[in-house]
Structure formats: C-alpha cells, structure tokens
Design a protein around this nucleic acid. Structure first.
Lengths: 349, 349
DNA sequence: GTTAGCACTCGGTAGAATCGACTGCTAGAA
DNA sequence: TTCTAGCAGTCGATTCTACCGAGTGCTAAC
C-alpha cells in the first residue's frame, strides 16, 4: 500500500493551507465588522489568487466540517466556536502595540501598596488596555501558617481577634464574650493563643482548654472563630475591572444582564477561571467552559505565580468575536509582569 | 382687603385638589406602564367625575407649570422631574408588602458576622427586595482611636503592621525594611509603637525617634505608613448589590454604560450619596443631584446611625420612573433595621 | 481543479397607506 | 363660569409593498 503524502492528510483536525487561509480571513473579518462575511470579500482580502466561486466551494466544506455557519441561506459565513478555536490555535504570537507595552511597564514600575490594591489596579489596567471586562483572581491562603494571634479589647464584652499569616495576610473577627473580660484575661488569652496556634495552619485542629474560667473561654471562642474563618481564608479574592464594558461589548439586554449577574457572584467567577486553567487552556470559547449562561462569551486567562507556585490568574471576558490577538497579548504581558512584580516583592526579602 | 381663603391659594408650589389628583394619576400610571398617559385613562382611573376634556385643560395648566411634558403633540403626558418631586413629596407613607417585611425581619434576625459582611448582604437584600441596584455606604473611621499596634515579621526584611481601632476596625500594611531586622528589633519596635500611638487617632502626629538604629527606623517607617493610611481609614466603604439590575431597568446601551461606569467609581458613589444626605433629601430625582451623567436616574437614600451618630446610608438607584412607594418603604425599613442591628451589636457590650 | 455566469434566496430598506391614540379648540349646556 | 361633547388635526407606530443588493449554489465550459 502506497504511503499517502502527509500534505493531503484528511485528519479531521487538520485543514489544508487554502482552507486555513480562508477560515482565518473569515474569522478576522467577522471580528472586525461583526457581520457575516461573503466569499468575494475573502477572495479579495486574503492573498490567495482564486475567484469567489472557489472560495465558496471551500466554504461549504468548512461549513460541513463545522468551522463556519450560515445565519440564513443568502448570507455570508460566520465562524462557529470551532472556527474561533482553530483561529486562536493558529495565531502567530501577536505583536503588541508598543504604546500599550509602555503603559504596562510604567504601571508596574510605579505601582505600590498592598497586594490587594495592586491586583485591583491591575484589573483596571487590563480592562483599559483591551476595552473588555477584566478579572483578576488572587490565590487563597490555605497553606499559610499563623505568625501571630492577638486579642484586643474594645470594651469588657467585645474583643477583636487579629491573626497574621506567613504570606502577609491578615484576618480579623470580632468576638463577643458573654462576660466581662478584664484586661488581664484578654492579655493572658492572647498569650495562650499564640502558644497554641503559632506555625499551625487553619486546617490544623488544636487541643483547647476545657476549663470554664474566663481566659479558657476566650481562648476557646477565639480558636473556634478562627477555624470558622478557614473557608474565607481559602477563598480566592476576585477583582473585577471595567464591568461597564459589558454593556458596550455585548448586544441584547438579556445577555448583558446575565453576564453582569454572573460577575456579581465571585464564587462563580473563581470556578470559571479555575476550570479553564485546570483544562490547561488559555482561551475558552463559547461552550468550551461549562457555563451555559456564558455561551456567547470567550474568556481569556493567564496564570500568575509566586515563586513558581500558582498564585492566581488574570482574565478577560468578551464576546466570542473578541479581538483575540490583542487581548491575548495584553493578558499574557500583564500576567508576566504581575508575576514578576509579586516575585520581586518576595525576592527583595 | 378681604383675606383670601387658604384653599384657593395660588402659591406656585401648591396645586388645587383636582390638579393634584390628576398629576398623581399621571405619575402613577406612567411609572406603571412607562408610556405617556392620556387624558381619558386619567379621567377613568382617578375617582374624579369629570370628562377627559376637563382633564385635558387641567393638563395644559400642569404642563405650563412644569409638572408634565409632552413627548410630541399627539401624545399623552409624561411627568417631569418636578412632577415626580411633587408625587414623592405627597406620598402617603407607604404600606409595605408584609411578605417583604418578614423577609427583612428574618434577614436581620439571622444575619451574623463582621460589619462588612452584614453591609454587603444588606445591599444584596435591598436589591432583591426592590429589583433596583442598591448601594450601602459604611462610614469611615476617622475618629476612631488606636487600641493596639503590632509589628509582625514575615522574614528579616518584611514586616506586617497591624493596627486595631476603637471601633473594631483593623488595618494592615506591609513594610519592607532596608536591613535585616531581628526578632528582638521587631518586638521592641512594636512595644515602642504602642507606647507612642495608643489612644491617638490617625490625624494625630506624634514625635518619632530620630536615631538611626534598626528599632528607631522600624518605628519611623511604621508611623509614616500608618499616617499614610489615614485617607483610607477615613474613606467610606461602598457595597453595591444587584448591579445587573441596571441592565434591565434602564433602556439604552449608553445609559446602562454610563450608570455602570459611575458605580465602578466608589468615590463618586460616596460623594453622590453624601451630597443628597447633606441636602436633607431622601430622594434625588433627575437633575436634583448634581450628577449630569445620572440625570435619568433617581436615587433614594436613608441614613444609618450608630448611637445616634451618622454611620452611613443605604441607597437605591433606579430610573426616574421608579416605584417610589415600594422603594422608599423598603429603603426606610432596611435602614431602620440596620441601625437597630448595629446599635444592638454595640448595646450588648 | 477552477472559473464565469446565472438563477435564486432572503434580509433590509424605503415609501405609501392606514391606524389609532392623543390633542386643542369651540360651541353649547349646566 | 365651568364643564363637556364633538370634531378636526397631529404624529408616532404598524403594516404592506416593492425592490435592492449581497451572497449563495449550481452548472457548463475552460
């Protein structure tokens, strides 16, 4: 049996050069114009020297294979999710507007302050750069250990518990004691808490005193409050930038409504981003992520690390016909710089 | 000169009974239907026994006085901002859906946790109750005094500064020392900071040591960082609930866009709410608040206090044709219950 | 395999006709 | 005077038609 040449392979995922060019031209133009694109404009724009008729016959093939779709008989073609997927998979790594590059570098050169603030500002930046809604997710602190616990009295019956963690996170929680706690009680409870909890993580259960005196009660309350905070500590933080872009980028009140209401639910957003990262994707188009409600959206994600460990992600949310090259480039550069910035903070220590 | 009877007073702000009835009917119907309302539907709905023709002649008067407007010649009337203003000023205090009353009571009976969480959840509640976007503003902490300052080492060159305030607020800030700080250095600096700052407020400037040893440097850094935080502490916190409602409640992409982008800017929102409170209003309609961009919106605010002191506000944002009776009732009840809840937390101490 | 030519489809637009919900005005009744 | 019935007039919304044009699929010839 003669070996078939590789170039004519009919593997379902491969496209011959001309089909690829045509598909890419269709996607590019549709992203640009938001209109169905016809055979003749492709024949002219792309640099293949063929007639519209030829383009047409290729298009029916592309449609049969699921890359393109026709809104109605006498209209041009529109990319399917699969078409967009091919497009982003075959993007030559984008060149980025150098003004924007500078903007990003300037930002990270000048940004200061707490991690939370940096993440929030990064989210705004990314949204401003791309005109899409941006999501920045900061990793949870599940593995951080306790460096310090302190109980402070507001008055005899109200205390504030403050814990500092090895990654710099701080949590607070107020405690209401059922009795009048003296200054000495609180100081002693603070001391015992430190002895009990230092270097442990929130997952770690500790033996609490079973006595019923004031100090022991304070200690018990504090420990249980602290453990109750574990999920909160674990929880990733979400910073959304440019949510108003949703209104201009999607059409149809219903879509805008849906997208906004998903953005309101931090947990959903975290799950979405995490799912995509877990699949090893950097772009999830339409139904590729499991979110029914977001089937007309594309999500771009880029991981952020600290010391090589996953520490969150930056993301962009737009319509499936979003400007992938620019958006991917921006997300990727921002995530790199953010990683460097966070590492830098560490490294200086 | 004969004294004119009060009832026929032509004072520019008073309306005779029939005009008032008609105006109220127009506003009510327009709120309900979003359509211009015509003379005949008013004649039938309102319980005045007059013909549409009579209603019409009253309407031209109301239009001349600025309460109503006509989108075009052959259309019905639409209320102006002044018309809405009259309407809300003459609302009989609304009766509230008792299911909703229960919902609010249940919420406050069961809600727990930190003030921030309560405020965020309250915002969601209010939005769910009314189907408008809700804003809850928590007062700043400018007058709180420092109860405790603590410096905790992450490693030799990184410390975290944690301060607890008399109102239970906690702020943290990381510090990067330019040298290796020993455990003893940090402990001693912590001790000195407490001695220096306890019972002061952030506005209060203190004398810092001018020596150049490690401890003094840490103390100086910490104090300056703390003072740099003053604006943040002052700053009110904003909790927005149901921002997705914006999409369904306003029409026109541009309006939605504008409103959303204003909601993104916490500072603007705080200013807006504060301005309205300062004017002593509970509703600001259209151009009554100074925000050009929100001229098609109405904002309802209700103050929240702790121990009688202003401690923030709850607000609702909707179109000028919002359902004032329900929204006012909900905002008012929620603000009362929230006040009670916050007072309760205090009172238990 | 490619292309020119052609018939056909179908959404979008422009214009005309119509509808109907209003109004303002006026003359006469209460 | 005040109110009302009646009426002509206005103007947006809706429907209908015709038509244009972008774009297709098919076929026959190159």
């Amino acid at each position: 049996m003669a070996r078939r040449p590789v170039t004519t392979s009919t593997s379902p995922t491969a496209l011959d050069a001309r089909k690829a060019t045509i598909l890419e031209a269709v996607v590019a133009e549709h992203i640009d114009t938001a209109q169905p694109v016809g055979s003749s404009s492709v024949a002219h724009s792309a640099d293949l020297d063929v007639s519209p008729a030829t383009v047409r016959s290729e298009m029916v093939a592309l449609e049969r294979e699921g890359y393109l779709a026709q809104p109605h008989t006498s209209a041009g073609r529109v990319p399917t999710d699969k078409g967009y997927r091919y497009f982003v998979d075959h993007l030559k790594s984008g060149v980025m507007n150098s003004a924007q590059q500078h903007q990003i570098q300037d930002f990270f050169a000048n940004v200061r302050g707490e991690v939370e603030d940096v993440l929030q500002q990064t989210s705004s930046l990314l949204s401003r750069l791309t005109n899409y809604t941006s999501v920045v997710v900061g990793a949870g602190h599940s593995h951080a250990s306790i460096l310090s616990v302190q109980l402070v009295s507001l008055d005899a019956r109200h205390q504030v518990l403050v814990a500092v963690f090895s990654d710099g996170a701080v949590i607070k929680h107020s405690i209401m004691s059922g009795f009048d706690a003296s200054f000495e009680d609180v100081t002693e409870a603070s001391r015992q808490l430190n002895a009990l909890l230092l270097t442990t993580t929130l997952e770690h259960r500790v033996q609490v005193p079973s006595r019923t005196d004031n100090v022991a009660t304070l200690v018990r309350d504090a420990v249980s409050v602290l453990h109750a905070q574990a999920p909160t500590m674990d929880g990733e933080q979400v910073f959304i930038g440019g949510s108003s872009r949703v209104a201009e980028v999607f059409d149809g009140v219903e879509t805008v409504r849906t997208v906004l209401s998903i953005l309101e639910q931090e947990l959903l957003v975290v799950t979405l981003i995490q799912d995509i990262l877990d699949q090893g994707l950097s772009v999830a188009i339409g139904s590729e992520h499991g979110f029914e409600a977001l089937s007309s959206c594309a999500v771009i994600v880029a991981p952020v690390t600290i010391d090589g460990e996953p520490a969150g992600a930056v993301g962009l949310l737009g319509p499936t016909r979003m400007k992938y090259p620019e958006a991917l480039a921006a997300a990727s550069m921002v995530s790199q710089q953010l990683t460097r910035h966070l590492d830098g903070e560490e490294a200086l220590g």
